[in-house]
Design a protein around this nucleic acid. Sequence first.
DNA 1: GTCTATAGCCAGATAGAC
DNA 2: GTCTATCTGGCTATAGAC
Lengths: 199, 199
Amino acid sequence: MAAENLSKGGRRREQILSAAVELFGEVGYRGTSLRDIAQRVGITHPGLLYHFHSKQELLSAVLARRDETDEANFRFDDQPTARAHAERLLELADHNSTTPGIIELFATLSAESTDPEHPAHDYFSRRYRRVIDLFQGLFDRLGEEGELRDGVDTTELGLIFTALMDGLQVQWLYEPEQVDVAGVLRRFFNGYLREPLGV
Amino acid sequence: MAAENLSKGGRRREQILSAAVELFGEVGYRGTSLRDIAQRVGITHPGLLYHFHSKQELLSAVLARRDETDEANFRFDDQPTARAHAERLLELADHNSTTPGIIELFATLSAESTDPEHPAHDYFSRRYRRVIDLFQGLFDRLGEEGELRDGVDTTELGLIFTALMDGLQVQWLYEPEQVDVAGVLRRFFNGYLREPLGV
DNA sequence: GTCTATAGCCAGATAGAC
DNA sequence: GTCTATCTGGCTATAGAC
């Protein structure tokens, strides 16, 4: 686990990363200043720059940490059945609802980074490819294992499911009380299955 | 039509609005400076501020102009059948593919404006409500007129279709060559209908 | 590790000349 | 209508004290 063998410097780094995740999520990378982040941690901005040498380096560290978490959470290639794989992914979506900071971060940054000059542009390009392929593979496998209703065309489902997730998250940022992201995704998913997934 | 009875000053205002739409779409509101916009028009930024007294006023004008266009294009309540209404909306989506600047603007700004402090936040809150209701009403009406396949649950389709549009547009900004927004929407839509819509 | 001080740049906005 | 010049303030980043 990452939170254990940390020097005091490591703890401060973690505080900074957390504050950066929150603020990048709230007002984007461009809308956040190093002073804002430093203030939230209780230091000054040159103090912050001792731990991360530039704002871009801090952004990279935020994204890298997310990748580590993904690596731990999204690696389900070893699931015995496609149904099990699907259930695990939807559980993850449920769980994500309890960590709004990360959702906020990715919904905000992925749109901000459509600009090719944005420092996170390439990261999100690659990430989209990966996520779409993950879901596409899942739907294909569900088809092979006879889990899909008659007449379901899986051709674009990876793309569609990914787009739907993204769009729902943005709507949730506008109306957190009224948009149940994980619930909509689950019901949408079940619409394609012969037998709905368990809770 | 708006482009006709314009003084010379009106023409310059239009140039500024166009440049603002492009730049807000490329790098967002916060990522765009008045100097950038002015330069694209060939004037200095105090020159620009003669026409729009502040950056926020310029943003408001951009959004207001979009609303006028919407008023002209989205008012289809008078369509004889739900099918006709649906066809008209999908034609509009096709047409929008030919005006990437506007798509870009809305995909970018709607994410940036999730921040409650953003000057366009309320605008996009209201807009989401409107668009979701529009599509929800359309799906409900399609159901009443017997156009939907058996077993289709329309409960959340307005929300889902809107989220899907948004998500696809973001993906399209990353890979313009590989994502056919209008095509995916049309095929998705047809998946719920007994008889597919005409081209 | 964190600070103060500051460099150097860019932002939005205003004053006043032409 | 558009300019130059300027104000004020925020930004990232660095230097050097403690």
